[in-house]
Design a protein around this nucleic acid. Sequence first.
DNA 1: CCGATTATTGAAACGGTTTTCATTAAAAGA
DNA 2: TCTTTTAATGAAAACCGTTTCAATAATCGG
Lengths: 180, 180
Amino acid sequence: MLKLEDMAKKIEEFKNEKEIFLEHIQKAGLRRTAQRDLILEIFLRTEEHLTSEDLYWLVQKEDPSVGHTTVYRTLKLLTEAGLAREVRFGDNKTYYEHHYNHEHHDHIICTECGKVVEFFSPEIESMQDAVAHKFGFIPTHHSLRLWGVCEDCQHKANESHPTMASGAQPRVRVKTIAGN
Amino acid sequence: MLKLEDMAKKIEEFKNEKEIFLEHIQKAGLRRTAQRDLILEIFLRTEEHLTSEDLYWLVQKEDPSVGHTTVYRTLKLLTEAGLAREVRFGDNKTYYEHHYNHEHHDHIICTECGKVVEFFSPEIESMQDAVAHKFGFIPTHHSLRLWGVCEDCQHKANESHPTMASGAQPRVRVKTIAGN
DNA sequence: CCGATTATTGAAACGGTTTTCATTAAAAGA
DNA sequence: TCTTTTAATGAAAACCGTTTCAATAATCGG
């Protein structure tokens, strides 16, 4: 696919997400504001997992008058609207990732290096629904995270630190997209 | 089973858990202290999901000199030793539950009333391991939570508040043990 | 267009978790 | 036993996420 087409698709996608946002705003009886527009705009530009604080600093660069709270609340709003998704990896921070036009997925996290791989398992999904129904619940959403030692870190362990146990949570986070 | 037998079994269980704890202490080169003994003792007596703060107040009654921090750190220690397990239900609090001699399980949480049902699905478990291996990970642990509307709340919704959406997180938490 | 209404904003406070640091005390060695 | 070493303790601070509240600004009605 040509770069031009990629960009066109991206722009189209953004438009859709902005429409979804405005629709959600209207349906909930909320108000459109310059701050919300700007925060959404910058969120859409950024593909990585980011925290409210991360996004706040990006927003700061374009409008220093916007506060932490507004960014925080707008991310919650985007989550309600289905455009964002909250995600936690065990370092006591809340990350947000794009949700609209992104396939639903879960995460597997390396306990050694913090690498995050996204995966989707239709079998697990359907069994979750089955379990919910078995207990009389109408399922709304779920959270599944797996932890383990990734291939790279298994090799590292063999080489130099054979007895090094998993210690503090790592700082580096590599995001890997992995299809099913 | 007679109550006497129950109690005897309970006492035996406690002894085992204390042994596990001491073993873990030794292996990790840590030290046995009066505070840790007391905190473990009181944790073992209490079967419900409790927070570090909850446990702190129980400990206070028996030894007011023990601080929040020590309770917090001892719970982490018990988690490492496999005697406790951290659990979050979405109210931004960390609960601890017994883990040793308790079957591994996941949770399904009612978004309306906060009821928590424990369940175990061997099928889901093995599929999780399969996914981990597929991506080259050696799995260590996982976290699965399902949310939905429980049977009671479905009926409630039909009766009186047909349009009431799920709002703030509930205070009341009913713990239900449900076998497979 | 103007005023009334009411959602939004941002600073600051709050709440729970985690870390820091000076002090205390457990274990190990002489 | 006495000394040395080093982990554990508890108060306080730091940290992130969330809520509160007075001030502001978007929408609505006239």
